[in-house]
Amino acid sequence: MELKIGDRSNALKDHGRVMREHFGIRTTGEQYVIALAGNPNVGKSTVFNALTGLHQHTGNWPGKTVDNAQGTYTYRNKSFLLVDLPGTYSLLAHSVEEEIARDFICFGHPDATIVVLDATSLERNLNLALQVMEISSKVIVCVNLIDEARKKKLSINFIELQKELGVPIVPTAARNGEGLQELQNAVYTMAVEKKKTRPKQVVYSEEVERAICTLLPKLEKLDLARVVNPKWLALRLLDSDISFIETIGRYAATQNQKIVAMPQQGSKITL
């Protein structure tokens, strides 16, 4: 007996419909979609509440949020639709709620993704940020919980961090409202003014890079570049997660005319 969770195999044409039907996100014409991603329990919902004035549940344990939530806020006369995602340790999901987050980050094409990090454990948290930066250049890194970091007597050199990562860094203490102005500003600059970033790309060890090089030409033939970053796709091919490859294929098909037909609902893909 299998748990069947959702069905992602509808052939969809435009992005708005993808958003609506896959993620339950409704945008009005002139709205910028902003995703809130991050490890579990770093304060994503707290940031969300502070910006939107809503009351998403928060709690000091990983896994409080298990579904997409959305809310809007206005900044400098522009409307932003913020999507609070379940926490996830990486883009290689294991559980249902992480899959929800992963799919939105990978395939939702938001106008900006805020990756929220826990200032007290940057080393672990940066993993996800770097993964997201492989997919998208529209990334803002929000280093939350700086009040906790202060209590632990950690001082973080944000200027240097920004230089290294090549994307905007905003330190916040969301629960106290610290840094939210700057965060909104950074979102505005990225989503509305389309300011470019140069996200740091991890350089992998030689054998990994070599494997990527052999895969890239094959992937270019599939002409998926508009849908997903080829290098990132190559990396995913190196993981042994076939179901994710299938998901990528399905999403690609919804957005790429070259690949038209879809596997029928529930049909098994055998190799």
Partner: peptide, 11 residues
Amino acid sequence: GLLRRRILDLG
């Protein structure tokens, strides 16, 4: 399997 991934992802 999955546990390996998870453990890796946690660093």
